[in-house]
Design a binder for these strands. Structure first.
Lengths: 350, 350
DNA sequence: ATGAAAGCGCTAACAT
DNA sequence: ATGTTAGCGCTTTCAT
């Protein structure tokens, strides 16, 4: 018998295949067959087994099953992101979870929070828990850590960024084209002094967006002005400061291109502080909640994080199930959403 | 030997305790001792074992270890929320994860997305994976499903809402006091016609916030006006519509109290559409990103979701580790953040 | 200080 | 159609 106890307290013994078999008067292997829907059990026995399972509130022990199974797949994947609170990663999380669920996989999540120690811990914890695959934003340290796990058969898919050497599938936004489209949008309406505030240049994503900014200028034959470029700016507060510094120049820009979410918000604050939000145009990379409710509504180059998460899950599952084709980069298109801040009339003096 | 293979493809065989033992020339039990930091291994052997483990890139199989262990704890907990993209739940997720990590627990997450089927699936999947505990927002269906798992020893902590019968720990915001404070803030500055837009009344949280609204009126001796109350409003669009209907009344309110995140945003849209954002005051329950950048900045009653997640994790871990005290409700205080929309001067005609 | 044997709950392989 | 045996990688228990 299985002893059970109510209340808030901790575990009691759970029913096993054997317990169910004993109650139903069959061998535990028959129970296993019923539970897994295998053929070769008479309807009558099967019903008796199911009834016994119900009575004992039986739940298959997934981990024991994985341990014994030939392929040893745990049907779980790990998602390691910088911060689950960041809406971009939260949306990736949701897309990934939806696709994973469709494939029968569960999702473990972890936030790195800028700690490389924590990042390594997460990889090791997830590996010890025998996830079949990991979805991560690569950095040089991490790629090295992952190499070890991958030799153990853990499959990896990169998101958001590309690693130095493409040794696995990656799913990224079309950062360069998106940035270029955003900046060209400004140049096309006559702006000639378009400043850029960008994230840490060692981040692949940031570099690509910068190249988009450069390409747009080249395409329009507009020379670049170093004084209008702030790079290696990380976080909202730094964004406010960097944008402010540029706006305060003797020869200020007529438009801003901010290459990341938080930087865009930072720039909005800097513009507000100077009462320039209707004077200086703004295009941001990556959409954010309520961008359309600000005054003026913020024009952005929107990514599709849900889609990134979905595709990452699909690639990962395909790899887990044996796809051995060469690593691919999946580029997810971006969308320019003109809302107002990027379409301000160019002041006569500009 | 352990065969290994590089590349993007799926699993190769992983090294086990036996493999490491074979390479180090000791029994696998000695390896187990070293890996788990148990005493009774000479320094020399221990070093040899560690070297062998490194060479073979050994990772303990956490799931096998759990299976055999006396207490059978998996050191993992499941978080089931409505939607990981919702910033409120995302913040809970982060707080929970931080506390769980400190306790050595991993976190499985799932979004319910308004599907009771999915909710039940998640509970069963997580139970089959032998999570030690679950953190969930209760509803009547779910509480019933959970009862079964709890008899199997899965510990439960409720967040955000209270269940009908308090049969486990719960961590919730001080919804009633928060709502009351928000509404009193309006009444205290002279408003006498304060409308309310609230979520589905069967949700405990929504009901509590409504009671706070009622209490505030009673405390100020202001009679309630049914025509100013829209309840059972779910989601941003419905919020816009409901707020709009009230604003269009012959005898409209001078202030709005919106009892939920998305409803607040909906109300902002309704006010904007009528050019009333500087005429009709607004206080919302639950803070949201960029609320301070809107025009006017939105006054809110802020919750502390990170703290809710943290406390939930701590309660859960305590229960898992044997705390048998009666179920408790942990009430997390809210904070009124006056930003502008709740402090508009009351129009003379109001 | 080290190791051998048993067994956690399950599936695989092989009886009957 | 049903059952028996072995063993996944590990911890427990007991022996040396």
């Amino acid at each position: 018998m299985v002893e059970q106890r109510d209340g808030v307290g901790p575990r009691t013994r759970r029913a096993t295949l054997r317990d169910v078999g004993a109650l139903a008067g069959v061998s535990f292997k028959t129970v296993s067959r019923v539970v897994n829907g295998e053929p070769g059990v008479s309807d009558e026995l099967a019903e008796r087994v199911r009834e016994a399972a119900r009575q004992l509130n039986y739940r298959p022990n997934h981990t024991a099953s994985v341990l014994r199974k030939r392929d040893g797949r745990s049907m779980s994947i790990g998602l390691i992101v910088e911060d689950v609170v960041n809406p971009f990663f939260a949306a990736i999380h949701r897309g990934l979870e939806a696709a994973a669920m469709d494939g029968g996989y569960s999702v473990l999540t972890g936030s790195v929070l800028d700690s490389t120690t924590r990042e390594r811990e997460l990889v090791e914890t997830f590996s010890a828990r025998r996830v079949d695959g990991l979805v991560v934003s690569p950095n040089d340290d991490l790629v090295e850590t992952l190499a070890l796990e991958r030799r153990n058969g853990v499959v990896v898919v990169y998101i958001d960024r590309l690693p130095g050497r493409l040794d696995a599938d990656a799913v990224v936004s079309d950062n360069r084209a998106g940035a270029r489209a955003g900046v060209e949008h400004l140049l096309a309406s006559g702006h000639r002094r378009v400043a850029m505030v960008g994230d840490t240049h060692t981040i692949h994503t940031a570099e690509e967006r910068y190249l988009g900014y450069v390409e747009a200028h080249a395409a329009h034959g507009v020379p670049l002005d170093q004084t209008l470029q702030a790079r290696d700016v990380h976080g909202g507060d730094a964004g406010t400061e960097a944008a402010g510094r540029i706006l305060d120049l003797a020869d200020p820009p007529t438009a801003l291109f901010t290459a990341q979410n938080m930087l865009t918000v930072g720039a909005v604050r800097a513009l507000r502080a100077r009462g320039l939000e209707h004077e200086v145009a703004l295009v941001g990379f990556d959409d954010f909640l309520l961008s359309d409710l600000l005054d003026p509504p913020v024009t952005v180059v929107a990514q599709d994080p849900d889609q990134i998460g979905r595709i990452a899950a699909e690639r990962l599952m395909a790899r887990i199930e044996g796809d051995m084709s060469p690593p691919q980069v999946h580029v997810v298109p971006t969308t320019l959403l003109p809302r107002g801040s990027g379409e301000l009339p160019l002041a006569a003096g500009g």
